[in-house]
Design a protein around this nucleic acid. Sequence first.
DNA 1: TATGAATGAGTCTTCATTCAT
DNA 2: AATGAATGAAGACTCATTCAT
Lengths: 206, 206, 206, 206
Amino acid sequence: MSPRRRDTEGTAAARAERRAELLATAAEVFASQGYAATTVRQIADAAGILGGSLYYHFDSKESMVDEILSTFLNEMWAAYDRVLAAGLGARETLEAIVVESFRSIDRHRAAVVIYQNESRYLAAASERFGYLLDSHRRFKEMWMSLLERGVREGAFRGDLDLPLVYRFIRDTVWLAAGWYRRDGRLAADDIAKQYLAMVLEGIQAD
Amino acid sequence: MSPRRRDTEGTAAARAERRAELLATAAEVFASQGYAATTVRQIADAAGILGGSLYYHFDSKESMVDEILSTFLNEMWAAYDRVLAAGLGARETLEAIVVESFRSIDRHRAAVVIYQNESRYLAAASERFGYLLDSHRRFKEMWMSLLERGVREGAFRGDLDLPLVYRFIRDTVWLAAGWYRRDGRLAADDIAKQYLAMVLEGIQAD
Amino acid sequence: MSPRRRDTEGTAAARAERRAELLATAAEVFASQGYAATTVRQIADAAGILGGSLYYHFDSKESMVDEILSTFLNEMWAAYDRVLAAGLGARETLEAIVVESFRSIDRHRAAVVIYQNESRYLAAASERFGYLLDSHRRFKEMWMSLLERGVREGAFRGDLDLPLVYRFIRDTVWLAAGWYRRDGRLAADDIAKQYLAMVLEGIQAD
Amino acid sequence: MSPRRRDTEGTAAARAERRAELLATAAEVFASQGYAATTVRQIADAAGILGGSLYYHFDSKESMVDEILSTFLNEMWAAYDRVLAAGLGARETLEAIVVESFRSIDRHRAAVVIYQNESRYLAAASERFGYLLDSHRRFKEMWMSLLERGVREGAFRGDLDLPLVYRFIRDTVWLAAGWYRRDGRLAADDIAKQYLAMVLEGIQAD
DNA sequence: TATGAATGAGTCTTCATTCAT
DNA sequence: AATGAATGAAGACTCATTCAT
């Protein structure tokens, strides 16, 4: 490794780190104000630089959300895929998926909020966000086949409307991103456990 | 009733009707695109008039959402208050509240979506939307005391974290507004029944 | 005179009267807010009708000021012309002109204010107001020749810069319209007398 | 002085200079067209930039006039206060005040015109312009007490209505801003001298 | 005569983006 | 890497004007 190359790598790494910092800042602002209502200047203020300076790092506001969301989704689907590849029973799979979801929320809270709130708007605004719809679709397929398998295997009740159950679970899990705080009273895994208890057994006393 | 008075009433009623029409249109657009991302022109296009013409009927874009949301909230709280005043047991109260919530979704789908998505943004943007935060607060109080009572009365499980249960139910119920269609497969009351089954008994087979 | 004709005359007279009323109202609003800053709706509000209704009587906002100003100027110049035709000495002419000016202010306060404040703007906005510039020009000629004659005749001091004196008097007289009230402490003729004392003799004690 | 600091000062000074340039341009346009009738675009055109670019330097059209007027008034009152603090006799004070007024006109012609024409409108439009009314009030007090003192001291005639004299002088002096040109035939101090001759001694030949 | 609803051009303002330094 | 000044398109809102009733 030549010094030249090491230097280049150092600079590239520094640049990547700065990008990541700025994206984290941007994600927080997008999550709390909404993408459309967030100005580039607000992001820059939060990062302590001037509005125009962001354009040294990113092409556009759009490419910022894009990077935030695609990074998050890649990581999340990698985790899901590991679970799905493990060959567990329907109930165990559901539990593992829910646990992974809360871990995603733990690691990418802001990105999850943005994904929840802005997917429809972004997908309508530009083709570049088509992958958001793909993700939603894959999501639905994953859950529906999991639920159907669970009913077949006798793990889940057969008297419920499955599309309804799907939406119920989907919404339920992800919306926790709206209020979750990393330093809050409950850790992500604890929340997952409680959610699973509610979803599987209900809140009614026996 | 003199002709004069009938005439006056007639025009006042016509005016109110036109307002309601335009507000319904605006609510749909706000719900589907988000408040900040919606332009006044889009609302006007949807209503078949020009952008400036909306200002004959309304002071501002802000006052449109304001009227949409406050109308909805007034009606919803009136329904809740009727339930709460009925003196039912905790479980029956919960069922009735959920049923009323789905009826609200049925009657004010777009307003519910806006309430869900834009409350935080609007409240931050202007004091005039303070009532949205008040409503959220009342909501929380209502649910928390209902859940606490249910645990005391032995109707609900005692091993769950109540603030978590509160959020779980809140999110669960209202998010249905995101996908509910009046002419869909299931009627509002059917959806309520299924939701109650899931929330109370869980999705697990016995 | 046939009844038909009398009726027509009655209507025409009534119409003219209504126009005059509305113009008086409009003049007050223009004078107090400025022409550009006055909306047609404000005039209509002040007249107790709706904005669109003004267009039954007048072609446009512009034609309203036009009529206000030209009516006033015609009357004022008629009075000036009577004075100028009387063949008085320079000093007596000056006195009579000042007195007539204060009478104009008394009768057309609002129009005078508009004339003072808006002439330049209106003349720049449309050729139709060219007569305003003509009036200013005639004004200047009248005063300059009066002052020159006065100096020649030994009635006025010869050591002053006449264009300066002209502006001094012009401004002095007309600006009284800005504060004059018909029901105020001093009548128009008293004010004229005091103004003449100041202009002719100065405010210095002998 | 460190290079860093010099640099900061340099940019801050450059910024202030640009603001001053733009404000001078804006003042000219406001003075010639009237505030309400002036569009932001006209100001920008006159400055050779685009309409939106003005908002990099100023918050609003309103804040532009605000800065123009308050800068002018501060300077003018500082000059008046110096005169008033000098302990001169009434006549000498009046002369000094008039001279200072014409110097103000010389330095801030456009601002004076705006102050004359738009004070009432601006004060009615927003509380932020309350200081304009304060200035008018102080103005009146200053003149009235000066005139009263002059009459007591025997410097000014006692047979005139003082409020009338006050208005006469106020109007007289300031309206010169309407036609004064820096490169005109007469310098500001010459005009002051002539005005004082007229006001004090009158235009009548002895 | 007047109303009420709408038009459409124009205003102020915002904001993503560019670019010379 | 970042600044600061500017661009230019778009947005909310205003208002003179029109017209069917």
